[in-house]
């Protein structure tokens, strides 16, 4: 099959969906002329014109808020927040407005919004351009939260997100943009709430998201040499969360390690571990472990940043602890 980068896969999803449905438009900072600062919206302006590919001023509240209004008015906005860190400027429009409107209005609102954004450390972009904040959005009823890890998943999940009638926060780890993988040419969807078993194994379940999926796979490869069989589960969406697949995996392996790049405290890992403990406590042969970033902002210096990001070695060590 043909290969694309993660960024190209997203770009193809946007183009195919925009060709299919004229109510879809894209808006955000530098998405048009520049093609997005990571190139995800490249070529959209040329194909779809200024009406459907809107360069906005630096105005995140209005980027998200106008998406809410436009969605209420029958359009399907795909808004871009250049970095997830900028959500603070605009959070109200997302969590008080977009997320709650349907419920508050007794069901009489339909808000098919996608908010695409980037997260993650690894570029020395420091404390305000490197965070992993997915857990914030998981805490808000009314939002869906998508966290792809491969080009294939990125395309399918973005198409699903665009076709979904709810506000979806679609989080792209910036260190994955250049990653290549097989991607079908035709449009396809991947259902939300369906975890993907990225590697089968029998001794321990490692649940990982986004860039950490690849580190978990590397760790699994290393551990296999030592006779430890690791199953790597990628939830792909955090809301809805496929607890069933994770729990079934743990029932088989009887051990759990959760890996994410976000800080451990208040992270998605706590939710995942708690769900497993609630549903499969009796199956566990060891206390579950979380491998996540320490409770600090993301540091700038490359040596500190690399110490901040969970490493393959830390995953390997955590797995060995739970299988010991």
């Amino acid at each position: 099959m043909r290969t694309l980068t993660f960024a190209q896969a997203l770009n193809e999803a946007l183009k195919q969906e925009m060709r299919r449905d004229p109510t879809i438009y894209v808006a955000g900072e530098d998405v048009g002329v520049y093609g997005g600062i990571f190139g995800v919206t490249a070529g959209l302006l040329q194909e779809f014109g200024e009406d459907r590919v809107r360069d906005t001023p630096i105005t995140e509240s209005a980027i998200i808020g106008s998406a809410v209004g436009a969605a209420a008015g029958g359009l399907r906005p795909v808004a871009e927040l250049m970095f997830i860190d900028f959500i603070g400027v605009a959070l109200d429009q997302l969590y008080n407005q977009a997320a709650k409107m349907k419920y508050m209005f007794g069901g009489k609102a339909r808000l098919p919004i996608v908010l695409r954004t980037t997260c993650g450390a690894g570029m020395c972009a420091a404390a305000q351009h490197s965070q992993s904040l997915e857990a914030w959005f998981m805490h808000i009823p009314g939002l869906k939260v998508v966290v792809p890890s491969t080009p294939y998943d990125a395309k399918g999940l973005l198409i699903t997100a665009i076709r979904d009638d709810n506000p979806v926060v679609f989080i792209e780890h910036k260190m994955l943009y250049g990653m290549e993988g097989e991607v079908p040419e035709e449009p396809y969807t991947i259902p939300f709430g369906q975890a993907d078993i990225k590697r089968e194994g029998s001794d321990v379940t490692v649940v990982a998201t986004m860039a950490m999926v690849h580190k978990a796979l590397t760790a699994a490869e290393e551990l296999a040499k030592e006779g430890i069989s690791v199953e790597v589960v990628d939830p792909r969406t955090l809301t809805p969360l496929d607890v069933e697949t994770i729990v079934n995996s743990v029932k088989k392996t009887r051990r759990l390690v959760v890996v994410h790049e976000a800080v451990k405290q208040g992270g998605a890992g706590g939710e995942i571990v708690a769900s497993v403990v609630e549903e499969a406590f009796d199956y566990l042969d060891a206390p579950p472990k979380r491998v996540a970033a320490p409770f600090t902002p993301v540091p700038f210096s490359p040596v500190l940043e690399q110490a901040f990001i969970p490493s393959v070695e830390k995953i390997v060590a955590a797995v060995k602890e739970v299988v010991a």
Binding site: I58, D85, F86, A127, Q128, F300, L304
Partner: peptide, 30 residues
């Protein structure tokens, strides 16, 4: 990104600051 820097290497270009000089920081948030 060195420890002798204004922010001990934690800030970098976008967060460089010297509060003793009244410089309340560069800023990564426009």
């Amino acid at each position: 990104g060195r420890r002798t820097g204004y922010c001990k290497g934690k800030g970098g270009s976008m967060h460089i600051a010297d509060v003793d000089l009244g410089i309340l920081g560069a800023n990564g948030i426009v």
